[in-house]
Write a protein that binds this DNA or RNA. Structure first.
Lengths: 206, 206
DNA sequence: ACTTTTGTTAACCATTTGGTTAAACCATGA
DNA sequence: TCATGGTTTAACCAAATGGTTAACAAAAGT
């Protein structure tokens, strides 16, 4: 009976992820999730005691995947600049795979900052070697040009993430000009991010 | 009776703005808005027929302010690069004044794209001279270097807006390193955006 | 003064929604 | 085969919530 168990549980999680992503914690209805999963609503409560817990499962999963994917800059066998390039690649790849993820995170975190902070602490245990620390070390050792690492990181994440976060807005803004923000643009986006990294991390002035 | 009228109406709108900003359309409760405004719940329905209309008022107001503020790039008496610089300044200034605005827009637009598109059409009537068109013309006339204008605009908006959108996330990410994203950073942010504009819009290779 | 219009409220209603219960279902091992 | 225990469901419940009503208060018009 464990197979069936596993099955419905993951089915529920998938449905919940879909609905929560679209509607957020408040907007999502347990009935919608049940319908999406093709099961009775009571079964949701059988597997996950209540809405809060079900949401935590989805939310925690999303965050976990997010951080796991960003855990690459720890590889000290390659140069910092290469690591940053890879970091941005994977970041954009991740967001391409889960386009609603960033919107979802923004939504939920902004309306429930406490819960988020708690969750983060639980998931980011081993990441002493964060990208920020890598940048700081790189600047101190002179491997990359001197600059404000927080601003650089913010700029980098902005260039990568905002296109996904704001694609609905951007489409609306662009549509007057007959231009759309489509998936084709991702390659170009990647290129422009790389260009930015080269611009900020190259020691050309030696 | 017009004074009193005006008063409560704006009081309600203010309260509604506050609550809607924080909770979104679904999360906001009419009772919360009434409490915040210090009036009876029924009065909300007296001034604004229902939740939807009240929300529309707030939402429309936010969008209107947003677009009005971005309507500056039409001034052809100054160079395109200068206009873009001013554009980014005002954009960041606007977001500094209304920090939750972008999160609010992201939230609502992502979960109700149709409504947004309709609203936008009503508000962006005279903006044939959009920033995108300015960029395209500038590239054609050779005033600014040849590049993909959509990517440039997206990059620009990313650098400006994402720090506000993602400040909750970013704080959580940074707090391990003991660094915070505070208001002090806005000046630095502005500088980095200007640097980016100079990088992308200067015809240094002549 | 008194009638009419506008503003405001308490009490109420219908629906939605998260959550519970008790019974049915069904695979498995004795 | 039938007892057992995990799984699933229909029916139900209580609270929350958007919205309405009817009565009252306060201006404004006459």
């Amino acid at each position: 009976m464990k197979l069936k168990d596993q099955n419905t549980e993951s089915t529920i999680l998938e449905a919940a992820r879909f609905i929560f992503m679209e509607k957020g914690l408040y907007g999502a209805r347990m009935q919608d999730i049940a319908n999406k999963a093709g099961i009775n609503k009571a079964l949701l409560h059988y597997y996950f005691r209540n809405k809060e817990r079900l949401f935590d499962e989805v939310f925690g999963g999303a965050l976990s995947r997010y951080f796991k994917n960003m855990d690459i800059i720890s590889d000290e066998s390659i140069s910092i600049k290469e690591r940053i390039l890879t970091y941005s690649d994977r970041f954009i790849k991740f967001l391409s795979d889960y386009p609603q993820m960033s919107i979802f995170l923004i939504k939920e975190i902004s309306s429930n900052e406490e819960l988020f902070h708690a969750k983060v602490k639980g998931l980011k245990k081993n990441e002493k070697q964060s990208i920020l620390n890598v940048l700081i070390e790189g600047i101190q050792s002179g491997e990359i040009p001197d600059q404000d690492p927080v601003i650089f990181l913010m700029n980098l994440q902005s260039l990568c993430a905002y296109p996904f976060v704001a694609s609905p807005i951007f489409n609306a803004i662009c549509q007057n000009s007959g231009i759309q923000w489509t998936d084709e643009q991702h390659a170009k986006l990647l290129y422009s991010v790389h260009e930015f990294i080269h611009f900020k991390l190259s020691k050309s002035d030696l």
